Amino acid sequence: MAVSEGLSIGALADRTGLAVSAIRYYEAQGLIRPWRNAGGQRRFERADLRRLSFVMIAQQFGFTLPQIKALLDQLPGGRTPTKSDWASISEGFREALDQRIETLTRLRDNLDGCIGCGCLSLEACALYNPTDRAAQKGQGPRYLMGDSPES
């Protein structure tokens, strides 16, 4: 198949390992934008291989499709992303991953202690979180989210 003819949805599925239905779903979500050939068949640019690979990796790291779309929307439409384009988009990706790494590190380091959930079910909770002080800091496991018991 000539590059100018684009990739069929089947060829894109074979290359990415995604099901055709998943590719159609990502299309419906605006993550990729195929065009139609003279016969009305969907055709995809080779750059869509990179876009879908990015989607798959980002999902493995816990990013939602709206978050991924926001990142991909920074890329210029109608042309293959350049190394500079990917460097730019990866900056926001890197920042989010760094925050997630910090959270996971806190979880790992405090797994056997209080995470500030407000459960008051462990004897130690009376020491770390008497009268559910963590609730004053907001919803969720406050100490895991970065608040400290002292603040």
Score class of each variant (00 low, 15 high):
47 A>W: 09
99 Q>M: 10
107 L>C: 06
45 E>T: 09
60 Q>G: 11
65 L>Q: 02
82 T>K: 02
28 A>T: 14
21 S>D: 14
70 A>V: 01
56 M>D: 06
48 D>H: 15
46 R>F: 08
86 W>F: 08
46 R>Q: 12
102 E>D: 14
64 T>R: 13
32 I>T: 10
108 R>S: 10
62 G>Q: 07
33 R>P: 00
56 M>W: 00
36 R>G: 00
42 R>E: 07
35 W>G: 03
26 Y>L: 11
22 A>H: 07
87 A>W: 06
108 R>E: 12
25 Y>H: 15
57 I>L: 13
38 A>V: 10
28 A>L: 09
66 P>C: 03
98 D>C: 04
43 R>D: 09
29 Q>N: 07
109 D>V: 04
38 A>C: 00
34 P>N: 06
94 R>L: 09
109 D>F: 03
25 Y>G: 03
84 S>W: 03
71 L>H: 02
81 P>C: 08
69 K>S: 03
41 Q>Y: 14
39 G>D: 10
19 A>W: 03
46 R>S: 10
69 K>Y: 01
30 G>D: 07
90 S>K: 09
55 V>Q: 03
41 Q>D: 10
100 R>K: 15
86 W>V: 06
105 T>Q: 15
99 Q>P: 00
106 R>C: 00
104 L>R: 06
66 P>L: 08
51 R>P: 05
